[in-house]
Amino acid sequence: MKVLVAGGAGYIGSHCVKQLLAAGHEPVVLDNLVYGHRAAVAPAIRFHEVNLGDKAAIDRVLAAERPDVVMHFAAFAYVGESVTDPLKYYHNNVAATLNLLDSMLRHGVRKFVFSSTCATYGIPDRMPITEALLQRPINPYGQTKLDVENMLKSLAPATGLSFAAFRYFNAAGAAEDGSIGEDHTPESHLIPLAIGAAQGLRPELQIFGNDYPTPDGTCLRDYVHVDDLSRAHIAAFPLLETAGAQHFYNLGTGTPTSVLEVIQAVEKVSGLKVPAKFAPRRAGDPPALYADATKARTELGWTPRFQTIQPIVETAWRWHQAKPKGYGDR
């Protein structure tokens, strides 16, 4: 199938493009390169440098490409920034997504795969998190993702739009062949920050809180390899053949890993010490967040190939060791 990948030059989007090619599909990338990297997309893949806020440009791309499916990875995703500049997040994550959906429907494209987030759950009442858990976002980033989920729920019965929305936990790692990886500016993810600190390229790592009710006092999170995320999106394609289909899935390994365990994995893989210090807790950080991904395993036949933190870190280390400055375009 021809698949238009919005945000296809970003971290998760570029890995999904690579997996689409491996699965025999034809990806086409749409990205404004605000956070994405042109070098993350193979030169042979058709690329449209377009902002989803530009309705006319979206129309031109859809009219020219006529995709079978659209995948959306083009959201802004910095939680702290969403609190200080919520309008930026509502414009990009909600209004721009509405532009895309509106154009899709006018061009007869009714299959959609949406990159959502576990941040829609807020601070959950219990662990692990299932899809049935009440969604109560505690920041504008999570709220904008939930707003799009609700938009999709309304559009499906009214328009015949079929969609799958994936609620990610902590995306991590890099392509196994080392060709693409994680390069954010600014960087907020633990694994690249720890690797950069070990390499001497980033400041001493801050560990926010060591007095949580967890085995070692640091927060527990669910790290899922970016290629495993990508394969789940592609596995959903057959479910979109039914008009108006609505599917929601958690994507995580279900195995919680602490901040200190991530640091230990980086040190073991790299052979380097991670300089780190404890800092006060951050407001809104739950002690633990990890997924029950039974639904994705059952309905999609999805099983993460990377089940533990060390092999995930190994792929990330290979990328950062080979590309200490990332793609070098910032």
Score class of each variant (00 low, 15 high):
I123K: 14
I58S: 09
V50Q: 10
V50W: 12
I180Y: 03
G173H: 05
V262Y: 05
F166R: 00
A158Q: 15
R110H: 15
F237K: 04
T130F: 10
K268I: 06
L229G: 03
I312G: 04
R221W: 10
D211N: 14
A119I: 02
D177N: 08
G196F: 11
K145V: 02
I129C: 11
D59C: 13
R66S: 06
E204P: 00
I123F: 10
L52K: 04
P192L: 13
M104S: 08
E149R: 09
T255N: 11
P137S: 03
L240E: 02
F112M: 10
A279D: 00
C219H: 14
R281A: 15
A236K: 02
H91Y: 13
G10Y: 06
L201M: 13
H15K: 06
V113Q: 01
Y78E: 09
K145A: 06
R46K: 07
L133V: 10
G209C: 08
V41W: 00
N250M: 11
K2I: 14
L21T: 11
Q246V: 09
V5Q: 05
N150M: 15
P86W: 14
A198I: 03
L33I: 01
T185F: 14
N250F: 12
F47Q: 05
G301E: 01
Y168F: 15
E187Y: 08
A236C: 07
E261Q: 10
F278K: 11
T214D: 04
L300P: 00
E182W: 14
G196Y: 12
E204A: 12
L240R: 04
A194P: 01
L20Q: 01
E49V: 07
A9W: 11
F112H: 09
A296L: 06
W317G: 03
A44D: 01
E267W: 12
C219A: 15
A175Q: 05
L98D: 08
D228S: 03
V34Y: 06
K111T: 07
Y78D: 11
Y249S: 04
T255Y: 05
P157W: 12
R66P: 00
P27S: 02
A132D: 11
I138V: 15
G36W: 11
T130Q: 14
A175I: 04
V313Y: 13
L155E: 06
H184D: 03
S258F: 07
R136H: 05
V61D: 07
S115K: 03
L161S: 08
S230V: 00
K111N: 12
T185N: 13
G217K: 09
E314V: 07
A198V: 04
